[in-house]
Amino acid sequence: MKIVIENFSLQYQDGTESLRNINLEILPNAVTVLFGPAGGGKSSLLRCLNRLNDLADVQKMAGRILIDGQDIFEPKTDVTALRRKVGMVFARPVVLPMSIRQNLTYGLELAGERRPSKLDEAVKRSLQQAALWEEVHDRLDDPAIALSGGQQQRLCLARSLALQPEIILLDEPTSGLDPISTGKVEASLQELKKDYTIILVPHSVQQAARTADYAAFFLQGELVEYGDGKELFTSPKEKRTEDYITGRFG
């Protein structure tokens, strides 16, 4: 088990109970998909896994999240180290206002890496992993903002990969992309899962079904069903899951 989530609950300051008693075990080297209708708590859970929720208006949190057996909410946890280990890609690509190369080396420089050879190597490796190398290798010093939306999103993926994380969280990474770019991102995920633990919030049920090795269905803060991806999408056990998959609500 890479990640173990035990009896986890989360309540925001305005009283919203976004997650209720979640139990989930996530395996390494696979794509685990968290899906369900809006407001289900998928983003909230992702943002807990790298403790990005630390600064949000969280009122109450209960339960535990273990990564490699370590409780990430323990006071002695090094949060920046955790965030390097658990990379994240957001729905809208946020490229930093720098060149393509600097976007990729920024995280490493924050971590104290200065050796040019290491940085160059990380740039090439991460771009290849994100299937972007072919398109940009001859203009690495151009401003990143000049890339297309799909390229920017893969740059954001590459930016997380440059830090050599162990886990990658993706929150609707293809919601703003055209089908071809979406296909490229999905293909690189299938490649990446050989080395990483991937947790994906897809932007559609179709994408969930296409990409999931394991799938978890979230409904209003509750984990309704969790299991093997193929099985869950062909023969769901829960009525509510089936209704959602077949498009009867949501």
Partner: peptide, 26 residues
């Protein structure tokens, strides 16, 4: 936008690095 801060934090920037290198320039 909060997404700017999130992006920097998620890369392992500290709060101060985020303010100095991302939020303030933006």
């Amino acid at each position: 936008p909060r997404s700017y801060r999130d992006a920097a934090l998620a890369l392992g920037a500290t709060r101060w690095q985020t303010i100095w290198r991302v939020t303030l320039p933006a």
